[in-house]
Simulated scan of single mutants.
Amino acid sequence: MIKSLTGPLARKRAALNKEDTGFTLIELLVVVIIIGILAAIAIPIFLSQQNQAKNSAAQSDLGNAKVAYVSYLVDTPAGASVAVATALTPYGFAATTGVTVTIKTGGTSFCIDAVSSAPAPNAFSITNAGGVVKAACP
């Protein structure tokens, strides 16, 4: 009786053990190498996109600072030198984190600088008569 129960049970265990195979070491190494290659391609592209985003934020801040500074000049015709963080806040300007904005005035004209925090800092400027350029104020 016991032999009649253990025989089919042993055959079932043997069949299960034959189908229960895992990945070989070579297959696992190939997958790890493929993931490494994909990461080596993707990470520099991702970092480049971050730097471009920081530069775009600086350029956008320049446009916003120009509009806010012109609004400030409408309220304060003397055009005194202004601290960006404090005086332009009521006019809708808030600098993006990682961007430094400074305003240089001279007579009836002004120039606004912005420096992004990208690894190689990029300086941008905007004047009262022009748009954003990739250079510091003269």
Results as ranks from 00 to 15, higher is better:
residue 4 S to H: 14
residue 5 L to I: 12
residue 5 L to F: 14
residue 9 L to T: 10
residue 10 A to R: 14
residue 10 A to M: 13
residue 11 R to T: 10
residue 12 K to Q: 11
residue 12 K to Y: 10
residue 13 R to G: 14
residue 18 K to T: 12
residue 19 E to S: 13
residue 20 D to W: 06
residue 21 T to K: 15
residue 21 T to D: 05
residue 25 L to V: 15
residue 25 L to M: 15
residue 25 L to P: 07
residue 25 L to Q: 11
residue 26 I to P: 03
residue 29 L to Y: 05
residue 29 L to H: 04
residue 31 V to F: 00
residue 31 V to I: 09
residue 32 V to H: 00
residue 32 V to C: 14
residue 33 I to D: 01
residue 33 I to T: 15
residue 35 I to Q: 01
residue 39 A to P: 02
residue 42 A to N: 04
residue 42 A to P: 06
residue 46 F to C: 04
residue 46 F to I: 03
residue 66 K to V: 07
residue 68 A to M: 01
residue 69 Y to C: 03
residue 71 S to R: 13
residue 71 S to I: 04
residue 73 L to Q: 10
residue 73 L to M: 12
residue 77 P to W: 08
residue 79 G to T: 07
residue 79 G to V: 11
residue 79 G to L: 09
residue 80 A to W: 05
residue 81 S to F: 04
residue 82 V to M: 13
residue 83 A to D: 15
residue 83 A to K: 02
residue 88 L to T: 12
residue 94 A to E: 15
residue 95 A to S: 14
residue 95 A to C: 08
residue 97 T to M: 06
residue 97 T to P: 00
residue 99 V to A: 06
residue 100 T to I: 10
residue 100 T to R: 03
residue 102 T to P: 07
residue 104 K to R: 01
residue 108 T to S: 14
residue 111 C to R: 03
residue 114 A to W: 03
residue 114 A to L: 00
residue 118 A to S: 15
residue 119 P to D: 02
residue 123 A to T: 15
residue 124 F to A: 00
residue 131 G to S: 13
residue 136 A to D: 12
residue 137 C to L: 00
residue 137 C to V: 05
